[in-house]
Design a protein around this nucleic acid. Sequence first.
DNA 1: ACCCAATACTTCGTGGTACGATGTATACCA
DNA 2: TGGTATACATCGTACCACGAAGTATTGGGT
Lengths: 106, 106
Amino acid sequence: MDIQLKRGLLDVCVLAAIKNGDSYGYQIMKDMKPYLELSESTLYTILKRLETAHMLTVRSQEHDGRLRKYYHITEQGIARLEEFREDWKEILSIYRFITREESEHE
Amino acid sequence: MDIQLKRGLLDVCVLAAIKNGDSYGYQIMKDMKPYLELSESTLYTILKRLETAHMLTVRSQEHDGRLRKYYHITEQGIARLEEFREDWKEILSIYRFITREESEHE
DNA sequence: ACCCAATACTTCGTGGTACGATGTATACCA
DNA sequence: TGGTATACATCGTACCACGAAGTATTGGGT
């Protein structure tokens, strides 16, 4: 799929991936893969960005000798997901504009 | 609305705006405005990009002493619109991932 | 003992792109 | 004279997704 098309979905998608329970980078990627593929560098960039925006918090935890960073969604992150539902209405309206047929109007 | 969200829609939206008849920049902007606002500089950038990609052709025409550049959609432009319908299915699948509820799974 | 895949996160450079600011120019109305 | 609408162009900036490359550990296969 076109890169541009998924841009706006990426951040929200990552938030959605942790909304039902804390998760970590590698797991988030696997969860999203069936729906939307993204590179590792992109994911970690997004996680950093969402952290800076206070949409999630991070907690480091040792797991089998490996470091894992668990991400937890904040109130603001949840609010962003709610907002997305509003955005979606606008997107639907744009979708209708794009796919509308105007054959009857000639 | 979030800028990122509309990025992927912009190009297709402009193509949709001329698919039922040739149009020019200023008119395209007015037609799109109720659905999706964009700045003039963005629109002309997009039109140039779509021309380079052979999705539309341009024809200059004098109108009341002012220059107007009429844009005409090409076969490839129409194909892009068809493609978008396929992209939309993927977007819907992502939308479902984002808005899914997993309360039953705990 | 050796190799490779999987796990897990990080950094850097590049290219694409939406936008504000600014500029050019004409027409029309008050 | 001035403001608004029409009409298009250019430039610099900031954001962002990605590929490439790197670091490091675990575990299975041969």
